[in-house]
Design a protein around this nucleic acid. Structure first.
Length: 112
DNA sequence: CTGGTGACCGAGG
DNA sequence: GCCTCGGCCACCA
């Protein structure tokens, strides 16, 4: 159900290490979300207690209205920001085995 | 049911 | 670099 997506997306975002970033598309993929848009929606509604600053758009730029706050928070985490966009080459969060295992485990049949 | 909207993505000109 | 189009899915009037 959509609530499962909701939980998974939050879980994935929570698993993003400090100093690293991921795109909405990546989060959607790992969280098994049907579409990146859903990730955005979930963050907008229930991302207040999550490290939402680590989620960026595919081109490396944060969302328009949050850009200021986001960039500042990221800077505090030690993320390199070049001309308003994040340095993907240095901080892009790759689907680490742990994260994938977590996602896999979450989708394991028989648990539910 | 339709239509509009959104913290999106990718391809093509 | 720019803009446009289409697709994606959940939510609401």
């Amino acid at each position: 159900m959509d609530e499962q997506i909701h939980e998974r997306v939050r879980d994935v975002i929570r698993s993003i290490p400090a100093g690293q970033v991921a795109t909405y598309g990546d989060v959607a993929a790992v969280a098994k979300a049907p579409s990146p848009r859903i990730v955005g929606r979930i963050l907008a509604e229930d991302g207040h207690d999550l490290p939402w600053q680590r989620v960026l758009r595919a081109n490396g730029t944060p969302a328009p209205h949050l850009a200021d706050e986001q960039l500042q928070l990221l800077r505090e985490e030690g993320v390199a920001i070049l001309d308003g966009r994040i340095d993907f080459a240095a901080h892009r969060w790759e689907e680490s085995p742990a994260a994938r295992a977590k996602a896999e485990d979450d989708s394991q049949p028989g648990l539910f």
